[in-house]
Design a protein around this nucleic acid. Sequence first.
DNA 1: CTCCTTACCTAGTACTTAGTAGGTAGTAAG
DNA 2: CTTACTACCTACTAAGTACTAGGTAAGGAG
Lengths: 200, 200
Amino acid sequence: MAVGPARGTRRERSRLPAAQRREQIIAATTALVAERGFWGLSMQDVADDCGLTVPGLLHHVGSKDGLLVAVLEHRDAEDVRSLEAALGVPREAASLRELCAALVRRNAAQPEIVRLFTVLAAESLAPDHPAHDYFVARQRTVLVGLATAAKGTCPDPDALARLVMATMDGLQLVWLRDPGTYDLVAMWEEAAAALFGASA
Amino acid sequence: MAVGPARGTRRERSRLPAAQRREQIIAATTALVAERGFWGLSMQDVADDCGLTVPGLLHHVGSKDGLLVAVLEHRDAEDVRSLEAALGVPREAASLRELCAALVRRNAAQPEIVRLFTVLAAESLAPDHPAHDYFVARQRTVLVGLATAAKGTCPDPDALARLVMATMDGLQLVWLRDPGTYDLVAMWEEAAAALFGASA
DNA sequence: CTCCTTACCTAGTACTTAGTAGGTAGTAAG
DNA sequence: CTTACTACCTACTAAGTACTAGGTAAGGAG
C-alpha cells in the first residue's frame, strides 16, 4: 500500500520534479481516501506514504482541501481519456448500452478507484463537505450524458438515466462489500437485460 | 440540529435516567454520523449536542466504538419492528414487491436515517472499519431475505435479490444528493416496473 | 433522615491534527 | 562559477482526539 518509505525508516529522501511528485501524491491519496474517506484522511499519512514531511506535502497541494481537488481533477481527466479510448468513438456517438458496458468493464478492473468514488460520493452528501458541489455537479452531468445517449430508444430517457446510474452505483456497492463473491460485469449484464429488455 | 445546549452556554445540566439519556445520545449520534461518517465523528460533538461532557458521554457508551454499536443495534431493532407493523404480516409472508414498496415508503419518510446508512455503508467497505463486519453480515441477510421472497416468482431469485438491493441503494444516493429534485417513491415505482415486469 | 446507587463532573494524559515561518540544499540556466 | 529557482526541511503553534482517575451530588430505597 505504501508508495514510499515510512516515516520511521531514515532513508535519504529523494527530490523529485513537481509533476512526478504530484502524481505520487495523488496515487497515495487515492488509496487512503478509498480506505478512510476524506474526514478520516490525514496529511501525515499521505506524507508518510510519499516519503515526505507534512510541510513538504503542503508545499505541493497547499491545503488538505487542495489535496482532494487535485485527486478529483486528476480522475476526471483520466476518465474522459480512457473512456473515449475504450469506445473507439467520441462518447456522444455510442449507444447507452455500449456506454454502460464500457464503463462497467473499466470499473471492474480498478476496484480501488471505484471505492474512492463510492466512499467520497456518500461522504459528500453533507452540504459542507469540500467535495459536495463537485459531486452534485457530477451527478447532473452524468445523468444528462446518459439521458442523451438514451434519447429516441425509450419513452422516458431521464427516468432510464436515473435508473441506470442508480443500478450501477448500487451494484458497485454490493460488489465492493464482498469482492471475492461477486462479479461486477456479470451482475451488470443481468441488470442490463432487465433495464434495456432481453434483446441484444 | 443540536439536541441540547451547546458547550458554551452555561445552562444547568439536567440529570436524566440512563435509558432516556441513551436515546438522546443515539439520536444525536445518528445525525452526526449521517453528516460526517464515523471517522469524522467526534465524541465532543456528540457530548455537546446532548449537553454533556465527554467523560459523561463515555459513562454511557464506554468508547467511540461502543457509540457506533449502540446506534446500529438501535436501528436494527427499530427497523424490524416498524417494517412488520407496516406490512401487517410477518415479513416472510409478504411478496418481494410488497416488501420493497414498504421499505421504500419508510425510507422516503426518514432521509436522515437513510443517509446514516448510506454514509456508513460506504465508509465501512474498509476492512478495519468498526462497522465493517456488521455491514457484511447485513448485506448477506438482506440478500437472503429478498431472495426468499422472490423464490418461485422468477427464474433466478439470487440475481433478482442483488439487483433489487443495488437499485434501492443506488436510487437512495441519487435522491439524497438532490433531495428537492427527486421523489424516491416515484423513482422506485419506475424501477419496479423494469425489474418485476410492468404487471401490477 | 440515612445510605447507596449512579449520572455526571473536573482535571489531566498522551497523542494527532492542519497549517505557518523561515531556512537549506539540490538543480538548472547563463 | 554564479545566480536564481524550488523542492523540501526543521521547528513550532494552537487546537482537537479518545480516554482515564477519581470525586461530587442528585434521587430513590430503607
